[in-house]
């Protein structure tokens, strides 16, 4: 469902051009569990942002479900992000002044979903993550693990096909990191395509398909068939 053909992404730093992504060819099928690993500056975050339509390739082609999304305008890109892509960030990025429930509701508000339907879906999403009793709490009143699970609920409330996670456990202790991974993998088992960018070798190894990046290129692409 995700196809990248000869994708390049160049940045101009000072008067030097940096090839953050250098001729990336990648095909990801629906429902895959994929980890992207590699040292800092290897381009893994850039790749994730590009797949998430937060960034555009300098050249090359990006097909999402067979549709060329590289040339979409702002409105269609925003719509695609809203409906088909979910983001989970290392720093959670919850809106601090909104309650947990309101944070989860945000994508639906932006999409102008009717309030009644919104309430039901948010309640169901919080219920599924065992966070119903935290609905009215502000982010600052939640633990790190709870915050990241709220962020996951927010990323998946519009039922996207792809969930992108950038170092989802980077700011968490081992225990809550485990909870978060558990939550993500449960979503993957229910057919969501999960792409995780991480430094953490242990976390990366859990994925059925593991991509290693170096200097803007894909160095290795390994699969294990899961039982």
């Amino acid at each position: 469902m995700i196809e990248l053909h000869q994708v390049h992404r160049d940045f101009l730093v000072g008067d030097q051009t940096v090839h953050a992504l250098n001729d990336i060819n990648l095909t990801i099928t629906a429902g895959e569990y994929l980890s992207i690993m590699g040292p800092s500056g290897s381009g893994k975050s850039t790749l994730l942002n590009l797949i998430g339509l937060l960034d555009r390739p300098s050249s090359g082609q990006y097909l999402l479900d067979g549709e060329d999304v590289t040339t979409l305008g702002d409105v269609q890109q925003a719509h695609t992000r809203n409906r088909r892509i979910g983001f989970v960030f290392q720093a959670f990025h919850l809106v601090p002044r909104l309650t947990a429930a309101e944070n989860v509701e945000l994508p639906l508000i932006l999409a102008a979903t009717p309030p009644q339907e919104r309430r039901e879906r948010v309640a169901a999403a919080l219920e599924a993550l065992n966070l119903s009793d935290r609905a009215r709490h502000k982010p600052e009143q939640l633990s790190g693990g709870q915050r990241q699970r709220i962020a996951i609920a927010r990323a998946t409330i519009t039922e996207p096909a792809v969930l992108l996670a950038d170092e989802p456990t980077g700011n968490l202790d081992h225990q809550s990191g485990g909870d978060v991974i558990e939550t993500l993998e449960r979503l993957n088992r229910r057919a969501i395509t999960l792409i995780v960018v991480t430094h953490d070798a242990e976390l990366g190894a859990r994925a059925s398909r593991r991509i290693l990046m170096r200097d803007g290129r894909i160095e290795s692409d390994k699969r294990t068939d899961r039982a």
Partner: peptide, 16 residues
């Protein structure tokens, strides 16, 4: 700025 980035990631248009 971070909130603006999140809003965009969640599907907010520039106009919004």
């Amino acid at each position: 700025t971070a909130e603006i980035g999140v809003l965009r990631a969640l599907g907010a248009r520039r106009a919004q």
